[in-house]
């Protein structure tokens, strides 16, 4: 049985129960004063890492390291990850601005951390709900030359191997790969726990290491520029009909009958 040293990247995004609004200049969504939380897929990664530890003998998971590349407040997200069970974290602080880093830049930072911190398993969300790029995990696996299993709905550790059930269109696919590996999480993987009060308190004392983008071999400017962001056309208000006959004639009028 090999010892796992897990890296869990987490991202601070607009809370998914909040309705994002596009800014006046239509270049981005408003972020000031809007509630932010951990990307839901990343909650699944954190939970899965903690469960791997709980499921196996004490030494199986040596250490779970959370990392976030984000604005100063991303530190709160890391505290949440640690309250859920991560051991320590790294915060690569970047200024809060409308344009976020692209997946390749993020993957490059992660690669350096993986190498420096001797990781042999990275569990990421399959996407983050703000830009929906769905690329970071794959790029990271490519940069590292590791195997990847994306969209996991079940992860089983078996000696040197991981058996991962993946969700594919209309069914599932089960793959097996040798560590080190990159796994991305899908919705049905698990149900994340609530951070308990004692653990929230403990998380405050866990180690949170601050870094800057300059500490890594990446260029800060993006390759793509956001030209325009627009909301979908507003929904047409529904009409009311007086009775069944009215409904039928309306449906006929619309060509639905």
């Amino acid at each position: 049985m090999s010892t796992l040293r897990i890296l869990v990247p987490v991202k601070r995004v607009i809370d998914y129960a909040v309705k994002p609004r596009v800014n006046k200049s239509q270049t981005a969504v408003e972020i000031a004063g809007v509630k932010h939380s951990m990307n839901p897929f990343d909650e699944l990664s954190v939970e899965e890492s903690v469960r791997l530890r709980e499921k196996h003998t004490p030494k199986t998971v040596e250490d779970i390291l959370a990392i976030s590349i984000g604005p100063p407040k991303a530190a709160d997200t890391l505290r949440t990850a640690m309250a859920m069970g991560c051991d320590r974290s790294i915060h690569v602080e970047v200024p809060e601005k409308d344009e976020m880093l692209e997946p390749l830049q993020v993957a490059k930072v992660l690669k350096e951390v993986v190498e420096k911190e001797g990781r042999n398993l990275v569990i990421l969300g399959k996407q983050s709900i703000d830009d929906d790029s769905s690329q970071t995990g794959q790029m990271l696996a490519g940069l590292l030359g590791w195997g990847q299993a994306c969209g996991a709905s079940e992860v089983v550790l078996d000696g040197e191997y991981l058996k991962v059930t993946k969700e594919v269109d209309g069914g599932t696919e089960v793959v097996k790969g040798k560590l080190p590996m990159v796994v991305t999480t899908d919705l049905r993987l698990n149900e994340p726990r609530y951070a308990s009060l004692p653990n929230i308190m403990k998380a405050k004392k866990k180690k949170l290491e601050k870094k800057k983008l300059e500490d890594f071999q990446v260029r800060a400017e993006n390759r793509l520029k956001n030209l325009k962001v627009t909301e979908p056309p507003p929904r047409q208000g529904g009409g009311k009909v007086d009775n069944v006959d009215g409904l039928i004639s309306k449906l006929k009028e619309l060509g639905a009958l």
Binding site: D15, V18, P40, A195, S196, L197, P198, I200
Partner: peptide, 21 residues
Amino acid sequence: LEEVMGEEIVADGTVAQDETQ
């Protein structure tokens, strides 16, 4: 929270980390 935990007024608890929670 620190006081109510410290003084053992509450036995356990959680704080919602996001709107869904």
